[in-house]
């Protein structure tokens, strides 16, 4: 600070203006330069790969653009068509909402249930935890989606298992009523990472609260509803928001299981898959940009809604 003032006074002396200006620059550089040097790679990325492209994408969403000719301004036509005349958009939105609504609650319920069982001071906690976590780590890969395709095929493993108890199962992945369920099961199978977060949250609850409750004669059930659940609501909220956003963005399993089509009859046409088809299958880049901004809007609205409602059910101890 002193250096800056010194150089400012030096500027005032006129005759030495030029070297003083350099002095002031040097002082500013010493103070702020290092920070910006360290931040430089990120700043380049921020402007070149995030902010610039985001602005460009907003512009492209009002154009018709096929990568070959220059973008042609069409006003709100893309958005109008999405809202009024695009059955695939409606279908993909329905499939995606269905997937979110089915997969997230089941996944979180499993994660919470297993976390509570594991948190009872049982032996072998680390082994169980590792086993339950493994699917989360592997589940996003193509290999697992490939495996799922076989498991739920007409002659796949699930139907072989069902046949042993005398049930003849359908071809799950090629039946429009069931195909979404195969993806839901795949998602629920990966309950391990929210489970770990629940476990960490459960560890934060002081044990003396339970001791006090036991002394007062509260049942296990009552302790769960009156202590565990309320104190865990911040973690439940966090997991719900993260998992929901992830579910909106899911892509790989639907792509592999449906062979990139989103079929049968659009029943696995995730929103992101439709966006991919429009952009890189049909090269409607302007239209796909509009789809991307609608996705942002949906996720943004959902997040805002979650935070607004959270004050009525999320318990913060402050």
């Amino acid at each position: 600070m002193a250096a800056v003032q010194d150089s400012a006074m030096a500027v005032g002396r006129g005759a030495q203006a030029r070297p003083a200006a350099q002095g002031r620059f040097a002082a500013l550089w010493t103070k702020h330069g290092a920070g910006y040097m360290f931040l430089l790679p990120w700043l380049v990325g921020f402007f070149g790969l995030t902010l610039g492209p985001a602005v460009a994408s907003l512009y492209l969403s009002f154009t018709s653009f096929d990568l070959i000719r220059s973008p042609e301004w069409v006003g709100a036509a893309n958005y109008v068509r999405i809202a009024t005349a695009d059955p695939k958009f409606a279908a993909s939105l329905k499939v995606t909402f269905l997937y979110v609504v089915l997969s997230v609650p089941f996944k979180l319920a499993f994660a919470l249930l297993v976390a509570i069982l594991l948190n009872r001071g049982i032996k072998g906690l680390t082994v169980y935890r590792a086993i339950f976590y493994l699917p989360s780590l592997l589940g996003g890969s193509v290999a697992i989606a490939v495996l799922w395709r076989q498991l739920f095929a007409g002659d796949g493993l699930i139907n072989s298992l069902l046949a042993q108890v005398g049930i003849e199962g359908p071809s799950w992945i090629s039946h429009p009523d069931y195909s979404i369920w195969t993806l839901v099961v795949l998602s629920v199978w990966q309950f391990g990472s929210p489970m770990i977060i629940f476990l960490a949250g459960l560890r934060q609850i002081p044990t003396d609260m339970y001791e006090a409750a036991s002394l007062d004669g509260a049942s296990k059930f009552r302790q769960f509803y009156k202590i565990t659940l309320p104190l865990l609501t911040p973690v439940i909220f966090f997991n719900a928001v993260v998992q929901t956003i992830e579910a909106f963005k899911a892509f790989t399993p639907a792509f592999i299981i449906s062979g990139g089509t989103g079929g049968p009859i659009n029943s696995t046409l995730f929103y992101t898959l439709y966006l991919y088809q429009e952009a890189f299958g049909n090269f409607r880049m302007g239209y796909a940009s509009a789809l991307a901004w609608i996705l942002v809007l949906i996720i943004g609205l959902f997040t805002a809604f979650s935070f607004l409602t959270s004050r009525y059910w999320v318990h913060y101890d402050d």
């Binding site: 460009a56 966006l275 952009a279 880049m285 991307a292 901004w293």
Partner: peptide, 15 residues
């Protein structure tokens, strides 16, 4: 930037 879905930057980045 952590909150924005990558779909928004996808197409201009590709271009």
């Amino acid at each position: 930037t952590m909150m924005i879905p990558y779909h928004v930057t996808l197409i201009p980045q590709y271009v």
